[in-house]
Amino acid sequence: MFLRVQLPLLLTFLAGLIPIVAFFFTEKARLVKVPNDRLEKWMIIIAGFAIMLGVVNVVQGNIRKIERKGPGWHYAIFLLIGLVLPGSFGLLGAFNVGPFHGISPHADGSPSPFSFFVSYVFQPLQATMFSLLAFYVASAAFRAFRVRNLEATILLLAAVVVMLGRIPLGESLFAWIPGGKLALGTFTEWLMNNPNTAAQRGIMIGAALGAASLSLRVILGIERSYLGLEKD
């Protein structure tokens, strides 16, 4: 029981306490700062292993899918190919194994195997995937912006003003008014800097207070779900 429950909770408490205590001391307080700096370096390394853990999970899940021949299992093969090829090129390139040297393009400008995948597969797919949202966002907007009440109207007006205020068409709409060419752009800027900032700031302060209180719950061992433990 101690090893499986209390010790992990104690480790969380101690590891959480170190950066909080270190925050209140200057660099001269080596007794506090040295463990904090060391722990900071260590965490970067553990994070690296944690990312690889996610990769193992995905590989496991997709191999299982192929074995069971579940719906769309053919696509799982492409997913694994897509993972293994750049992944292995990246690993081999990072550690200069065999003919692989680095993951960046070579000095003569020719792409390394890894950077070839990044430039011609990963980046185009990523940009296209996000650009597809431009179409779906339009239908989502239609549903969200139907003028049903005051709140939806405010949402609609703010979105339209911001969209029009950032394109040449918006400028030309008011160009016939003396000095009106920049009016929409100026109003958009004002909208972004004042009411929008107020809303974002309120959300940010609220979320930060929530995150801080959750952190306190984790450090004190009240919140334990991240360890797979039920709350008492």
Binding site: K41, I51, M52, Y75, A76, P86, F95, V121
Partner: peptide, 27 residues
């Protein structure tokens, strides 16, 4: 569906390379 699956795989492959090169190797 093919391109979507490939994107998911290549994204992870990308992070493997980046993590190995920028995190595990230098640190």
């Amino acid at each position: 569906r093919f391109a979507e699956a490939l994107f998911a795989g290549v994204s992870l492959g990308y992070y493997i390379g980046q993590t190995a090169n920028n995190t595990l190797k230098p640190n």
